[in-house]
């Protein structure tokens, strides 16, 4: 099996941040890939397939996260997750323009 690593930086843009429901969507999507997927906020790195670990990242609106996958479908996994976070915004509302907070 071809092992490859792929990573991307994403920013949380929906107003409510990565709370329970978005975290669930994220974990559910991550679970559909065979690659090992990790998410880091710079301080902590967690398993993208664990809802407990993902919610404990406590990523608020504006946070930057690094999604890193290792495995046969690594690139596809990271791209899909970015799409969920940045384009679909977990199906939630974005923060009003000009109000996007920057983390740390």
């Amino acid at each position: 099996m071809a092992q490859q690593a792929y990573e991307l930086k994403v920013q949380i843009k929906n107003a409510d941040g990565l709370h329970m429901r978005p975290a669930m969507q994220f974990v559910d999507l991550a679970g559909t890939f065979v690659s090992k997927i990790q998410v880091s906020n710079g301080e902590t790195t967690v398993d993208a397939k664990s809802i407990m670990q993902m919610t404990m990242l406590a990523a608020t609106c504006g946070s930057h996260l690094t999604i890193r996958a290792e495995g046969p479908d690594a690139k596809q996994a990271v791209e899909s997750l970015r799409d969920l976070v940045e384009r679909q915004l977990f199906g939630e509302a974005a923060k009003a323009a000009g109000d996007t907070r920057e983390d740390g």
Partner: peptide, 19 residues
Amino acid sequence: KDIFAVHRRFLEDPSFRRR
């Protein structure tokens, strides 16, 4: 339904259970 689904994800989460 979403709340229930979130609770279920937690209860099924192996790393939560292992903790």
